[in-house]
Write a protein that binds this DNA or RNA. Structure first.
Length: 449
RNA sequence: CGGAGUGUGGCUCAGCCUGGUAGAGCACCUCGUUCGGGACGAGGGGGUCGCAGGUUCAAAUCCUGCCACUCCGACCA
């Protein structure tokens, strides 16, 4: 992408409404624009990151055996009356009427609708287990939206819903999602820790929150430091191996970990002092087993082997990709801007033409731009007629992991400089015949190429 | 929803107290000089001062009402 022809409205000043670092940086980097309280437009750069988060979430859902569909954003009030939640949900639900005066709502979640879909088609226990998910915009009319897309009213959520014949099956489904979530956050380049959670209004008796560690996180968390060393299950995980999966979940739930709401000071004190960690974090995922809560009132039953209709055991599993983007910024930034985990960086390489208009420099940049692009590397080519300082600052702000700088000096010395600015950065192949040097950078810790 | 506050060009803000025909910096356009960490000069475009009423010869400024947004608290992916 040529920056001169892209749409990247970065800001030098911080808009005054932004109080937390991720909100400030996302506004300054031209990722989002507020349209109303808690409602944001995703600008091209932000959308690139969001799409990468979505893709990883989707891949890991699919890997675990969940199946994607897409439900609408608008739902009927009648559906919610079946579960009794139309009244129970309260003012957080955005209620609307269509032209025929029918009561509708902008979906805050989809338990009712997925249950309706399930019961319409699934009649036999032989069709279980089943896990259906979608990535769809939700609306919750928060009393007080804040922190940019961290707590917005409209937000993207991946929500999965599992259906099983009995509790044992449902726990296996729960464990699949548990492991899928561990893998998802690992791949996103974020350190997550599952913590026992309150089930809240969704109900049920088994629930975990996945917390990303970030110094500026809104929740206070307490956990055993050994969590930081437990290996995340690999891509070869067999999600159908019930015992092995349970073993993994047991290991990940064996140590103390709790948010301040669930904190048990006594249990925490029982951990050896040097293993106690109290830190801050951001909730980015939440999984629930809630049994028959919706299947019973809504008549979602299958015929079991005995021929009798049996209500199915359900669970639901949510990740907020829009929040994940903000959480990633909270977890990884510095004075100059964002430091994206490489997996979700909007571009992999920023190619900085330090002397736009100089035939030799332009030529070298064009050549490298084409070479990298043809290798499938996502390059943001800063071909604007700007001073180098402005280009450096811009690349730092938006957080491109690898910054390749080419100017007259590079040509004279026969090498290009590559500044690495990423967390979890690995290896970058430029071109075979180019001498690559990692430029040390003051103030920053750079990861060697 | 309680408490506090803010609305002036795309962004950050001054002007308001003490009414008199709207300003600065950044950004943007033109020309020139520049160019390895956010350059400089000259010229230029852009605002019915959140909205509606009122007071007044005259309102960004004073009064009333409304709207929007932000922050703190209770609530949440």
């Amino acid at each position: 992408m040529r920056l001169s022809r892209y749409f990247l409205p970065t800001l030098r000043d911080t808009p005054k409404e932004a109080e937390i670092v991720s909100h400030r940086l996302m506004l300054r980097a031209g990722m989002i624009r507020q349209e109303s309280a808690g409602i944001y437009a995703w600008l091209p750069l932000g959308l690139r990151v969001l799409k990468k988060v979505e893709a990883i979430v989707r891949e890991e859902q699919n890997r675990s055996g969940a199946i994607e569909l897409l439900m609408p954003t608008i739902q009927s009030a009648d559906l919610w009356r079946e579960s009794g939640r139309y009244d129970a949900y309260g003012k957080e639900m955005l209620r609307i009427k269509d032209r025929h005066d029918r009561e509708m709502l902008f979906g805050p979640t989809n338990e009712e609708m997925i249950t309706e879909i399930f019961r319409a088609y699934v009649k036999s226990y032989k069709d279980l287990p089943l896990n259906l998910y979608h990535l769809q915009w939700k609306f919750r009319d928060e009393v007080r939206p804040r922190f940019g897309v961290m707590r917005s009213r409209e937000f993207l959520m991946k929500d999965a819903y599992s259906f099983d014949l009995d509790k044992a099956g449902a726990i296996h489904a729960y464990n699949k999602m548990f492991v899928a979530y561990l893998r998802t956050f690992e791949r996103l380049g974020l350190k997550s820790i599952p913590m026992r959670a309150d089930t809240g209004p969704i109900g049920g008796d088994l629930s975990h929150e996945f917390i990303i560690l970030a110094d500026t996180g809104e929740s206070e968390v307490f956990f055993h430091s050994d969590y930081l060393a437990i290996p995340v299950p690999g891509a070869d995980t067999n999600f159908n191996d019930i015992a092995a999966l349970q073993g993994t979940v047991d290991r990940w739930t064996s140590l103390y970990a709790a948010t301040s709401e669930m904190h048990d000071a006594g249990a925490f004190e029982a951990i050896p002092a040097d293993k106690r960690v109290s830190a801050r974090g951001i909730e980015v995922g939440h999984i629930f087993y809630f049994g028959l809560k919706y299947s019973e009132p809504m008549g979602a039953t299958v015929q079991g082997p005995d021929g009798r209709p049996t209500p199915v055991h359900m669970g639901s599993y949510g990740i907020g990709p829009t929040r994940v983007v903000a959480a990633a910024v909270e977890a990884s930034h510095d004075d100059a801007g964002i430091r994206w985990p490489e997996a979700i960086a909007p571009f992999r390489v920023a190619l900085l033409n330090l002397k736009q208009g100089d035939a030799a420099v332009d030529g070298a940049c064009e050549e490298l731009y084409r070479a990298l692009s043809s290798q499938g590397v996502e390059v943001l080519y800063d071909d604007r007629d700007e001073r180098p300082g402005a280009k450096f600052a811009n690349a730092d702000l938006i957080g491109v992991p690898y910054q390749v700088m080419i100017g007259p000096r590079s040509l004279a010395e026969g090498k290009v400089e590559v500044k690495v600015r990423a967390t979890g950065a690995r290896e970058l192949m430029v071109t075979e015949d180019m001498l690559v040097q990692v430029a040390p950078w003051r103030r920053r810790r750079d990861i060697p190429l």
